[in-house]
C-alpha cells in the first residue's frame, strides 16, 4: 500500500513538472505582445520587459520560473499591472471553491438518486424519463443551460439574482447550472452500476437468505453500486472545474474560472500559467485523494494492493 501511494505521488509530481515545463515553453511561443497598446512608448515597453525578466535568455527565464514555482511564487500578472498571481488566486479561489463544492454536492446527490430511481424502474416510464433527462444534460452545452436558467429565473420570473456571488440566493443558479453535466454523467454511471450489480450472484444469495426486495436494494445493491462511482469522481471534479470557466463568466462571479478566461483573452500569460498550474495541481491532488479514499473504502481494492 505504501509503495502504491509513493508511486502515485511520484507520478503526480512528474506530471506537475511536465505541465509546468510545457506551459512555460508553449506560452513563450504565443504570438502577440502582452504590453501592446497605443499609448505604450517603446522605452516603457523595454523597461517592462526588463522588469518582468523577459529580456533574459529563455533557459534562464525557465530556471528562474521553475525556482519560483517551487517556492510557491507564480510571479506578477502581466495585464493587471502590479498584481501578484498568488494574490489573484488567493482572492478568487474561495468563490470558485464554494461554487464547485455546491455544484458537486448537487450533482452527486441528484445524480446518484436519479441513477437509482432509473435502475429500479428499468424499462418503465420513470427510467425513460431519466434517460432522456440524462441525454439532455449531456447534449445541451453548459453555457446554453446557464444562459437559459439565468434568463428564465433571473430576467423573466425575477425570483433569483441574475449575477454576482453574494448571498445564498446568488449561488443557486450558477451552482445548479454547473452541476447539470456532472449530474447527468453520474446518473448514467449509477444506473449502469446498479443494473450490473442487480445480476450479481450475491443478490441471488441475499434473496435466498429471505431478504425482502427493499432490504436487498438498500443493503446490498446500492451499497455495492456506489463503489465504482467513486472512481469517476476525479473526472467529475475536472468537469466541474472546466465548467466553471463559462459559468463564472456568465454569472459574473469573481472566481478563478473567470480570471482564466479573461487572462487568455488578454494574453496575460503569467496569469494563464499560474492558473493552469494551480488547476493542474488542484486536480492532481484531488485525483490522488479520490484514489486513496477508494482504496481505503473498498475492501477489494484494499486487498489487492496489499
Amino acid at each position: 500500500m505504501v509503495r502504491y501511494i509513493l508511486n502515485r505521488v511520484l507520478v503526480a509530481i512528474l506530471t506537475m513538472f511536465v505541465l509546468a515545463t510545457a506551459t512555460f515553453f508553449l506560452l513563450r511561443l504565443v504570438p502577440g505582445d502582452p504590453f501592446a497598446g497605443p499609448k505604450v512608448v517603446p522605452e516603457v515597453k523595454e523597461r517592462l520587459r526588463i522588469h518582468y525578466g523577459l529580456d533574459k535568455p529563455l533557459a534562464e527565464q525557465y530556471l528562474i520560473y521553475m525556482g519560483n514555482i517551487l517556492r510557491g511564487d507564480f510571479g506578477y500578472s502581466l495585464a493587471k499591472r502590479g498584481h501578484r498571481v498568488n494574490k489573484v488566486i488567493k482572492d478568487a479561489f474561495p468563490a470558485s471553491l464554494d461554487l464547485g463544492i455546491r455544484a458537486m454536492i448537487i450533482a452527486i446527490i441528484f445524480g446518484i438518486f436519479f441513477g437509482i430511481i432509473a435502475a429500479l424502474n428499468r424499462g418503465k416510464p420513470l427510467d425513460y424519463l431519466t434517460v432522456i433527462l440524462v441525454l439532455i444534460g449531456i447534449s445541451v452545452p453548459s453555457f446554453v443551460v446557464a444562459a437559459l436558467l439565468q434568463y428564465f429565473f433571473g430576467v423573466y420570473l425575477k425570483i433569483l439574482p441574475v449575477a454576482r456571488y453574494e448571498s445564498f440566493w446568488h449561488t443557486l443558479l450558477p451552482a445548479f447550472a454547473l452541476s447539470l453535466g456532472t449530474m447527468a454523467v453520474l446518473a448514467r454511471y449509477m444506473r449502469a452500476s446498479m443494473l450490473e450489480v442487480m445480476t450479481a450472484d450475491y443478490i441471488k444469495t441475499a434473496k435466498a437468505k429471505g431478504l425482502r426486495n427493499t432490504q436487498i436494494v438498500i443493503r446490498h445493491q446500492i451499497r455495492n453500486a456506489l463503489f465504482p462511482i467513486l472512481t469517476i469522481l476525479g473526472p467529475a471534479i475536472a468537469m466541474v472545474l472546466t465548467g466553471s470557466f463559462i459559468i463564472e463568466s456568465i454569472f459574473a462571479i469573481p472566481g478563478l474560472g473567470r480570471h482564466y478566461v479573461l487572462a487568455m483573452q488578454n494574453l496575460d500569460y503569467t496569469l494563464v500559467m499560474g492558473l493552469t498550474l494551480f488547476f493542474g495541481f488542484f486536480l492532481i491532488v484531488m485525483n490522488l485523494l479520490v484514489d486513496f479514499t477508494y482504496g481505503i473504502i473498498d475492501p477489494r481494492v484494499r486487498y489487492t494492493r496489499n
Partner: peptide, 28 residues
C-alpha cells in the same frame, strides 16, 4: 407472495451456489 416467500427462504429452504467467489457480497 414476497413476504411469505421471504419467511421460507433462508430459514426452511436455503441454497448454496456454484461460485463462492461471486455469491458472497464482496464488500461485506
Amino acid at each position: 407472495d414476497e413476504k411469505e416467500m421471504s419467511k421460507i427462504c433462508g430459514s426452511q429452504i436455503s441454497m448454496i451456489f456454484q461460485d463462492p467467489m461471486t455469491s458472497l457480497n464482496p464488500t461485506m
